[in-house]
Simulated scan of single mutants.
Amino acid sequence: MSRQSHRQFLESESRKPLPSNDLTAELALAQRRFEATFLHAPVGIAHVGLDGAFLMVNPRFCEISGHDAATLLRTGFQQITHPDDLHIDEDLLARLHDGEFPRYTLEKRYIRADGTIIWINLTVAMVRDDDGQPEFFVAVIEDLSELRRASFEAVHDPLTGLLNRRGLAARANDILADARGGEQGVSLLFLDLDGFKQLNDRHGHAAGDACLVDVAQLLSAHGTTRDAVARVGGDEFVMLLAGRDGVGAEALAQDVRVALAAQGVGVSGSFGLVHVTAPDAVDLERMIACADAAMLTAKHGGKNQLRVGVFG
């Protein structure tokens, strides 16, 4: 038999129906493989009804979502989705149902059974019947906790939770860009603690760490969501203040100074402030340097003081 004839023979044989016992074996094998994949997949997999109810969930889905299978099968994805993410998820599901796209991917939050919130990466596809009608959704989720944690830790101080220098630089890009062309400009407040070394020497590093956390909370409480608060050194902090003129920034700085001294732990602060009316994207380091110089003037002048520097 020639090579071509042999190939044609194999193709014709492959098209012949399998005997019933072979077909049963093939179906059983396919079922075992599906179950193994579903049960042991490293990602969470769920079949979701058109009403949002869970039809099937694999163990990894339960592990990531923080709910057991019995609970999930009694509820729907709406009950475990963070309220702030539910609208966009439902909107994408409706568009998927209508055939606008074959699948979608979304970063969203689940609320676990213990009340903690977890970020996931969700991919959803539509399964249709032989007539092309929607039958159910297949959802695949991946845990983003470690990725999100690594991203957070890269730009935040591990002790206080404030921005670090890298985080401050990234946040400053937006603040300075928003301030350009505005009337109020932007201010930078530089704080160096007075008496912090003595506190550490007298009461130990645990007390020193607690003091730094308290200072971070005080600064955050005096700022707004538009501001950036950062720890840029051992006992050095920066507030990049948006939406205030120079007078408003100076008043806030004095409020912080008084509140810090009133904590009664033997620590006060030397403050340097600089205000820029027309900031440029490259001005952050110059602002820090000018505010730092003003802070040193305050420290040499007797501590627990605020000095306003000149930007230049």
Rank of each mutant, 00 (worst) to 15 (best):
S2N: 15
Q4D: 15
H6L: 15
R7P: 05
Q8D: 15
E11I: 13
S12P: 06
K16F: 08
P19I: 07
S20N: 11
T24Q: 15
T24E: 15
A25H: 06
A28W: 01
F34K: 06
E35S: 12
A36Y: 02
T37R: 02
L39R: 15
H40D: 15
P42Q: 11
V43Y: 09
I45T: 04
H47T: 09
H47P: 09
F54M: 10
V57N: 07
E63L: 11
I64Q: 03
I64W: 07
D68Q: 12
A69M: 14
A70M: 10
T71G: 11
T71I: 07
Q79T: 13
Q79H: 06
I80T: 12
H82S: 04
P83D: 04
D84M: 08
L86E: 03
D89T: 13
E90T: 09
L93Y: 01
R95A: 06
P102R: 02
L106D: 05
L106F: 06
K108M: 13
K108R: 12
I111S: 07
A113N: 14
A113Y: 00
D114P: 06
N121Y: 00
V124C: 09
M126D: 09
R128C: 14
D130L: 13
D131A: 14
D131S: 11
P134C: 12
V140S: 08
E142R: 13
E142F: 00
E146H: 06
A150T: 11
F152W: 09
E153Q: 14
A154E: 10
V155H: 04
H156I: 03
G161M: 08
L162H: 03
L162I: 06
G167H: 03
A172G: 10
N173F: 01
L176I: 04
R180N: 08
R180C: 08
Q184H: 02
Q184N: 08
S187R: 02
S187T: 06
S187G: 03
L188I: 02
F190T: 01
D192L: 07
Q198C: 00
G204E: 05
H205D: 13
A206C: 06
V213G: 03
V215Q: 03
T225N: 11
V229D: 07
V229C: 13
V229P: 08
R231C: 11
V232A: 05
G234Y: 00
A242G: 09
R244E: 13
D245M: 04
G246W: 00
A249W: 01
A253V: 01
A253F: 00
Q254F: 00
D255T: 10
V256Q: 06
V256F: 00
V256S: 04
R257E: 13
A259K: 05
L260P: 07
L260Q: 09
A261H: 10
A262G: 14
A262C: 03
G264N: 08
V265T: 11
V267L: 10
G272S: 13
V274I: 10
T277P: 04
A278D: 15
A278K: 07
P279E: 05
D280R: 12
V282Y: 01
R286H: 07
M287D: 06
A293E: 14
A294R: 04
A298F: 05
K299L: 09
K303L: 03
R307W: 02
